[in-house]
Nucleic acid binder design. Structure first.
Lengths: 204, 204
DNA sequence: AATAAAAACCCCCTTTTCGGGGTATTGGAT
DNA sequence: ATCCAATACCCCGAAAAGGGGGTTTTTATT
């Protein structure tokens, strides 16, 4: 029997999930929490296999909670269950230890299938989430070339295009192109977000 | 026996704390209040050693109440128990006489340990609160106001001035001023360097 | 009552970044 | 031989950020 814990600040979501999962053979809900603090308490008292984790929580960010859970209960497997379909959140949750990513509009079968797949050691993404990941990778993936990494480092250090160009004996337009391409590859919209991502993801 | 009074506007928190503390040997809860007025009455009639004090109270600010308690009952030792993890609140509470600062998401052991430590004359900060204080001291002279810290967080998250202005219901020029002032205070020349500093120095 | 700090706002002007298009040259793998 | 990825370059125009000045109001401290 797969023991599932739900962490979500919407009672309706909790109820719905509970109904769905309890009706499914081989799995049931052993607990639910509506915020990060309760979730921590629940995890202490209740052994489980899977956590369905929302990102929007009132007291703590779900991505941080994900990291916390993985650190304290490495055997627990986490599935993100959220409305966010942006690549950033997926990438962050995966980085913080999530084994799956379900959008809230996912079909019920996707949810139970996801739980089963992740329980058996796999990874699972709902159709829409998978599409986002796929399109992102197709757009260039997260792997940066040597030159791109070099450029990114200099950007993170606060150099402007002009300065980088002088430093590397390249044209400003070249740096500009690299910069725009980096924004694209990393899926962010400006320098601030890029620097943050670069540091958090240890890209530099 | 350490006599503890709880002041918090959430019944759930009071219940939880009561359960936790009464179950702990050597300490018990002798009273609880859900607002500032009740708290003052309670203090008059009930001798105690420790007050667990929330900052968010319906009638009076917990930071003011803290000052009041210290002035009227100097022997009483106060531990802030709150959801606010901003340095501002910690600094204010400590200044007003608190001997400890526990975040509501603190582990139960941290809470009982904190009560014991403070009762014995020491100071206690939950892990998360301690980290905030530490990073703040380490960065020396740099002091950002609450608003500045808030703005910095939003910048780090990649919002533009326009977006921040809309989010906080302020003018774009205001955000612009804050931004320029942050660059000055942090001694950096552009957003990239600022974001890097903010993350590395744990300013956000 | 005076001072100071924080918060919000304003203008002008320059530089930099960003979005959306491209092109040319390499050097390595199939 | 050809395909491909990496590198370097280019133009336009719009949006955003940065530099350097300000002002007003509120709030706290002395």
């Amino acid at each position: 029997m797969i023991k599932v814990i739900i962490v979500d600040d919407h009672p309706i979501v909790i109820d719905g999930m509970k109904q769905l999962i309890d009706a499914e053979p081989g799995m049931n809900v052993v607990g639910a929490a509506m915020n990060g603090a309760d979730a921590r308490e629940l995890l202490k008292s209740t052994p489980a296999d899977i956590v369905l984790l929302d990102i929007n929580l009132p007291d703590i960010n779900g991505m941080e909670l994900c990291e916390y859970i993985k650190r304290h209960y490495p055997a627990l497997r986490i599935i993100a269950l959220t409305g966010f379909k942006e690549y950033f959140y997926m990438q962050k949750m995966i980085h913080n230890g999530a084994s799956g990513y379900l959008l809230k509009n996912a079909m019920p079968e996707e949810i139970t299938e996801g739980i089963r797949t992740v329980y058996e050691g796999g990874e699972y993404f709902s159709d829409e989430a998978g599409a986002v990941l796929k399109s992102h990778r197709e757009k260039g993936g997260i792997f940066l070339t040597m030159r791109e990494t070099e450029l990114l480092s200099l950007i993170v250090e606060g150099y402007t295009n002009r300065e980088i160009a002088d430093k590397l004996f390249l044209g400003v337009e070249t740096i500009n192109s690299y910069r725009k391409n980096l924004l694209l590859k990393l899926g962010v919209k400006n320098t601030a977000a890029m620097v943050r991502l670069a540091i958090i993801e240890k890209l530099v």
